[in-house]
């Protein structure tokens, strides 16, 4: 079990979230997940397991996908955090991955989909033409309990083509 700082003073953590500078007064050990949800009111990032096992909380820190439920805010200090709310262009045009998600009617309950989409966007940034095996490797950390894996795979390929 990890040991907690029991009486640590809250400090101000400075970072950028979806392009906007933020100063959050908080225990810097607080996971990014809870800071963006509770402090910033960005509820699109979801709590699934609290242990980096399901991927529902995936966000980007400086473009890298991380599980925000186990990433302390201190690790994001001075960095750029992107959540699902920050993916669309400023004019509201959805990211190619989001558009592909709609085209393939991917979500069912939808709870895991913010995390799925953030993982897929990160994959396509690294690899613009992923094979089935590449997709399996990049997406295996994201559980979809509604089992929409066939559609997720198809949507990633569509997004790769149209990006």
């Amino acid at each position: 079990m990890r040991s907690y700082a029991t009486a640590e003073e809250a400090t101000v953590v400075q970072l950028t979230v979806n392009g906007k500078a933020q100063n959050i007064e908080i225990d810097p050990e607080t996971p990014v997940l809870w800071a963006v949800r509770e402090q910033l009111g960005l509820n699109g990032t979801k709590f699934g397991c609290g242990a980096s096992l399901c991927g529902a909380c995936t966000v980007h820190i400086d473009g890298e996908p991380v599980r925000s439920c186990v990433t302390p805010l201190s690790e994001a200090e001075g960095k750029e955090v992107t959540t699902i709310e920050g993916l669309a262009a400023p004019d509201g045009t959805l990211h190619a991955v989001q558009q592909a998600w709609i085209k393939h009617q991917v979500p069912q309950c939808g709870y895991c989909q913010s995390g799925q989409i953030m993982s897929a966007v990160a994959l396509l940034q690294e690899n613009s033409d992923p094979s089935d095996a590449d997709i399996d490797a990049a997406m295996a950390g994201n559980v979809c309990r509604c089992g929409m894996y066939t559609r997720i795979k198809a949507a990633i390929k569509t997004a790769a083509k149209e990006a």
């Binding site: 009111g41 509820n43 709590f47 993916l87």
Partner: peptide, 20 residues
């Protein structure tokens, strides 16, 4: 097209856990 899907890809869908 399902009416609930767009809000589930842009993060605006409100689940129970998102109550404010």
């Amino acid at each position: 097209p399902r009416v609930d899907i767009p809000s589930k890809v842009d993060g605006t869908a409100i689940f129970g856990i998102d109550a404010q």
